[in-house]
């Protein structure tokens, strides 16, 4: 007997299938123009590539911004917010987790969970690119670096330059100003990563930090931001031993198992 979770986000879509013991299969794809199309595609790929018999899926929960449309199409039986699902998924992967930091391309969330992964409190960024992956994208482009390089290059910085503004647009002009004055990309990148971490740390402080802490989402892959955050919050950020992108879909599958009577 299987239970499934489908997470259709703004950039990627995932499906995770679990049974009573744990993860059976998962798949992640780039999104299609419509959320329902993304959900169908990721499920089809899971069936074709990993031999999952979808008829054996007893209950499916959708999450992510396309969650309601996916349910309306009959692909899931219920929908749960990605905030609850990320908390549940993280708690299953790291049972002692109490704070989940999830920083994606457009959203930044800090989620506090209880012992069983239940949602205790959360905070989500306001409608602003600062503190999200988009902020790093803009600054990396201005510096002529890839996103990966933005993280790695700052470890060779001799000093961390101060960026006075957290606004992505204003920050870009400060980055340009530093470049024109001849500062190294490494020193500027270190400043960018610190500015990013400061914004995220503020979000964490707003909801309150409780150990253990995990970090997921694309920005979690930036080692410099992680290191800055660990320093600012004086905490170790635990890494998942699976693909951090599937945490939301995994949480949805766990919810499905609960709703479907599979505990």
């Amino acid at each position: 007997m299987y239970y499934a979770g489908i997470d259709v986000g703004s950039l990627t879509a995932q499906a995770v299938v679990i049974n009573a013991k744990g993860i059976v299969a998962y798949k992640s794809i780039g999104v299609k123009p419509h959320p329902v199309q993304s959900a169908k595609t990721v499920v089809d790929m899971l069936i074709q590539e990993q031999g999952i018999n979808w008829n054996e899926v007893k209950f499916c929960v959708s999450t992510g911004y396309g969650r309601e449309q996916v349910q309306a199409e009959g692909l899931s039986q219920d929908n749960v917010s990605e905030i609850s699902c990320h908390g549940m998924g993280a708690s299953w992967l790291v049972p002692d987790v109490r704070t989940v930091i999830d920083i994606g391309g457009q959203d930044a969330k800090v989620i506090r969970v209880g012992k069983g992964g239940e949602l205790v409190d959360f905070v989500m960024n306001d409608k602003c690119a600062a503190g999200t992956g988009r902020f790093l994208e803009v600054q990396a482009r201005t510096l002529g670096l890839s996103l990966d390089e933005l993280g790695t290059v700052s470890f060779s910085a001799e000093r961390t330059l101060e960026l006075s503004s957290r606004c992505s647009i204003f920050c870009e002009t400060e980055v340009l100003h530093y470049l024109q004055r001849g500062h190294t990309k490494a020193d500027i990148a270190a400043g960018v990563n610190r500015a990013m971490a400061e914004r995220v740390a503020a979000l964490v402080r707003r909801v309150g930090l409780e150990k253990e802490v995990t970090m997921s989402g694309g920005v979690a892959k930036n080692a410099a931001v992680r290191a800055e955050l660990e320093r600012m919050l004086n905490v170790r950020l635990i890494k998942y031993d699976t693909d951090s992108q599937i945490v939301g879909a995994l949480g949805a599958a766990l919810m499905a198992r609960k709703m479907g009577g599979g505990s």
Binding site: Y65, V80, S81, E82, I83, S84, D107, L119, V120, D121, F122, M124, D126, K127
Partner: peptide, 22 residues
């Protein structure tokens, strides 16, 4: 929230739904 921003409806509903789940 940004006043009158229809484009932000999805994010607002996500937060309210998560609050109900909480």
């Amino acid at each position: 929230k940004d006043y009158g921003s229809k484009a932000d409806t999805g994010r607002i509903k996500t937060r309210v739904q998560a609050f109900l789940e909480r």
